[in-house]
């Protein structure tokens, strides 16, 4: 390779490597701020600020959803299988909100450690499958399909 071009190649590589390193260091320093939400374990351990708006993310505990019969109020527990945090929310929940599914709730922690949410988002997982496959995985028969004797 021509020496001038070789030198340019080195400069170009240095530009890419150094700028990547710089951005990498910034991202590493800000890693806590890049996270969209706190897992329940961090909230229970007291790592999340009280009385400031935070987001909590995890799975809705099975059987923990309690709906008020007269209002839109809902309470449920969010877990990361290490710790659980109670969430209180008044409003319309997204379609995919369900027990055992992912959720991200935004709101303030009160003194009892309950997250009073102003917004609840459903967190979809990466699994995509047809209803029949999902039913088969759960050991049930798909709708419209005769049970084999």
């Amino acid at each position: 390779m021509h020496p001038v071009r070789k030198q340019r190649l080195i400069v170009v590589s240095l530009v890419v490597v150094l700028s990547s390193a710089a951005v990498g260091l910034v991202a590493f320093a800000l890693r806590d701020n890049i996270n969209l939400f706190y897992p329940p374990a961090d909230v229970v351990a007291g790592k999340a600020p009280v009385n400031r708006s935070i987001r909590l993310g995890g799975m809705v505990v099975e059987g923990s959803i309690e709906r008020s019969s007269t209002e839109l109020d809902t309470t449920f527990w969010v877990t990361d299988y290490e710790a659980s945090v109670a969430v209180r929310y008044s409003g319309i929940l997204p379609d995919l909100f369900a027990e055992g599914e992912g959720v991200v709730a935004e709101g303030k922690l009160n003194s009892q450690g309950v997250l009073v949410a102003t917004q609840v988002l459903a967190k979809h997982d990466e699994n995509y499958m047809p209803p029949e496959v999902a039913a088969a995985l759960e050991g049930k028969t798909a709708p419209g399909e005769a049970a084999t004797p």
Partner: peptide, 24 residues
């Protein structure tokens, strides 16, 4: 994968079985 995000992880995986059914 590096941070907690609302966006789900990749469904198509280069190694191992994809998290999306083959019909899709």
């Amino acid at each position: 994968d590096w941070w907690y995000s609302l966006h789900q992880p990749a469904s198509i995986k280069f190694t191992g079985e994809s998290a999306i059914d083959s019909s899709m």
